[in-house]
Design a binder for these strands. Structure first.
Length: 569
RNA sequence: GCGCCCAUGGCUCAAUUGGAUAGAGCAACAGAUUUCUAAUCUGUGGGUUGCAGGUUCGAGUCCUGCUGGGCGCGCCA
């Protein structure tokens, strides 16, 4: 049950006004605490403690209250009856929402022909967990991998291939799309080298850059050879993305639809902008002015067509809204990107408002912080590049393998991968997503304390106990030991946590809850033997029941984080 | 220049959005296994929350001003 809500509602009803219910930081004060008397005292010009004295008897009458006392400047501290806890403790279940929202979620946003790197870690992991939270709350989400699959970077890749294979048929005037093209292919790793090389060359070779622009424009206009080539490397790249997110246990995207798909809606969006007289010519480009008189911050115009007539990502993002409205007609669109793109989304949302395309209050940008190295600058490899996600996963995997062999544990490869992924993901999720954090490979692979492996280990322990048990889990009425009581109270706090995580879009609340739950589970595990021979059957049954709902609650949180639990570790 | 964000033990991060004695992990030190997995548990030391004011019953949190850092500001995404 949602204990917090139950207690809060009961107190509010009893008092006849909305009191603020808190869980004291220092649990010695009780299970709950309200500052109703202090708030009320200000309005009524009364002494807070005196007012608390008037409120106190009413609270003491409530059937779940064991004791209620006045403390400090006027707090009323409440302790819940043990039998009430015993009667109502259950594991959480997904919500049945009677008015579910349709939510389009835009995260991931991988680039075709570029390997996933550390910059994609948070958008993937946090986006996936937010998606799972929304679904748990009973909403319908539609996830979009809004790929960079149609812009200048595609021109770069094709220009590079043209440079190294000028004799290939895609580049000949007599190109025949019906010929057998099966021998023109690339390995994923080979493909991923093209863009960086092309990009480096374009910076110093103006002629090559001109080629890139020409090829990009021709590709977008339907050049048969370039499009045939695109259709060869695009699936290779897509598969490579899928492999990586599969390793990370990220839910498959409902749509791998990016800029190319959005670009199909250029004409209707342009028409809409022209109808509203929003397109303005400026330096050969067509722009939309989004600045308001009240703005104090810089607010540059939005580029719809650049001076070469091409559309930029500002434009394709408008088209994507148009497309999603047409197909999903969502209640909300939520974007998860690096917080450095905040201005872009502010501009985008203003255009949605100016065109009447989408209600601005239902467009939401969640900006996450940068992952930095020990020097406080964005995390780089020793050679100065953004670290590949696959390489980071490999480092974690090697560390798990080393740790397992240190402890003389024989674990299969799947288990080792599972533990490594949990270490990476949990480390990401435990941080406030809006803040930067420092990624330290040594601490991520230490697996001690507040880590993913700790969480998995705790779940494995509980599963192991439940597997051995012959008694039926059943909660018998007994006096709760402190470690049993603390654990049950935290289990009953799950609903408040996920509600808060949902409202605040705060994935770290789930991770912190999971860690806190594990600490209490391990304390319970140590101080309360479950299956030992000298434990009587009633106690065994009770502790098995606690073990079971603790395991179920923990599994719910690990599911939300997309962590798998191994059979042993 | 304009705007946004940040500053908390040696290190990495919390703090129920204004609540009570600022908490965890790592690192250091001292302990725990005839017992369900020691990737565990128990304990010890470590703080003038960058600085100076202000608001009120009450401030790490809100306001003002400094100092120091990060980020953004038309044809990259």
């Amino acid at each position: 049950m949602n204990l917090y809500k139950y207690v809060s509602d009961a107190i509010n009803e009893k008092l006849g006004f909305a009191a603020n219910l808190e869980i004291p930081r220092n649990r010695e004060f009780g299970d709950f605490s309200t500052n109703a008397a202090m708030v009320g005292a200000k309005l009524a010009h009364k002494n807070p403690r005196e007012l608390a004295g008037e409120i106190l008897p009413k609270i003491q009458e409530l059937d779940f209250v064991d004791a209620a006392t006045i403390a400090g400047p006027g707090f009323i501290n409440i302790k819940i009856r043990d039998d009430f806890i015993l009667k109502n403790a259950t594991a959480p279940a997904p919500y049945k929402n009677e008015t579910p929202l349709v939510i389009d979620m835009d995260y991931g946003a991988y680039n075709v022909a570029k390997s996933l790197h550390i910059g994609h870690l948070r958008t993937s992991i946090v986006g996936d967990t937010l998606n799972r939270i929304f679904r748990f709350m009973g909403h319908k989400t539609i996830s979009y991998n809004h790929m960079g699959d149609w812009g200048r970077s595609m021109g770069m890749v094709i220009a590079w291939i043209k440079r190294i294979h000028p004799d290939w048929p895609f580049f000949q005037n007599n190109f025949d799309a019906n010929m057998d093209l099966s021998k023109y292919t690339f390995s994923p790793s080979e493909l991923n080298t093209f863009y960086p090389q092309a990009s480096a060359l374009a910076k110093q070779d103006e002629k090559f850059m001109d080629d890139v622009h020409t090829i990009t424009a021709e590709l977008q206009r339907g050049h048969p050879g370039y499009n045939a080539l695109y259709n060869i490397f695009m699936p290779i790249s897509l598969k490579s993305m899928h492999d990586t997110i599969h390793k990370l246990n990220i839910l498959p995207f409902d749509n791998d639809l990016g800029e190319k798909n959005a670009a199909l809606y250029e004409a209707p969006v342009e028409k809409l902008l022209r109808e509203k007289n929003l397109l303005v010519e400026s330096d050969g480009a067509e722009i939309v002015v989004v600045k308001r008189d009240t703005d104090t911050a810089p607010m540059p115009p939005v580029m719809f067509h650049n001076s070469r007539g091409a559309t930029t990502y500002d434009a394709t993002d408008i088209m994507a809204i148009y497309y999603r409205k047409l197909t999903d007609n969502p209640n909300k669109i939520i974007y998860l990107t690096d917080s450095r793109q905040s201005l872009h989304f502010e501009q985008l949302f203003r255009i949605a408002e100016l065109t009447g395309l989408f209600d601005t209050k239902n467009l939401e940008h969640i900006g996450y912080g940068t992952i930095n190295g020990a020097d406080g600058k964005p995390f780089k490899t020793r050679s100065g590049n953004a670290a590949d996600l696959d390489d980071i996963i490999q480092i974690a995997t090697d560390a798990v393998r080393a740790r397992a062999s240190e402890n003389n544990k024989e674990l299969d490869d799947d288990t080792i991968d599972t533990i490594a992924i949990a270490a990476l993901k949990f480390n990401d999720l435990i941080h406030d997503l809006r803040s930067d954090y420092i990624f330290d490979p040594d601490s991520v692979t230490s697996f001690e304390g507040k880590t993913g492996p700790y969480v998995l280990y705790t779940a494995v322990r509980l599963n192991s106990v439940l597997k051995r048990a012959t008694n039926t889990p059943k909660l018998n009425n007994h006096i709760l030991l402190p470690d049993e009581r603390n654990l049950l109270m935290t289990i009953m706090d799950f609903d408040r946590t996920i509600q808060s995580a949902y409202e605040n879009r705060a994935t770290d609340m789930i991770a912190n809850y999971a860690y806190n739950l594990c600490q209490l589970i391990n304390a319970f595990y140590h101080s309360c033997p479950i299956l030992r021979d000298d434990i009587d059957d009633d106690t065994k049954q009770s502790r098995l029941y606690i073990t079971k709902i603790a395991r179920d609650t923990l599994v719910t949180t690990t599911d939300l984080m997309g962590l798998k639990i191994p059979d042993k570790m």
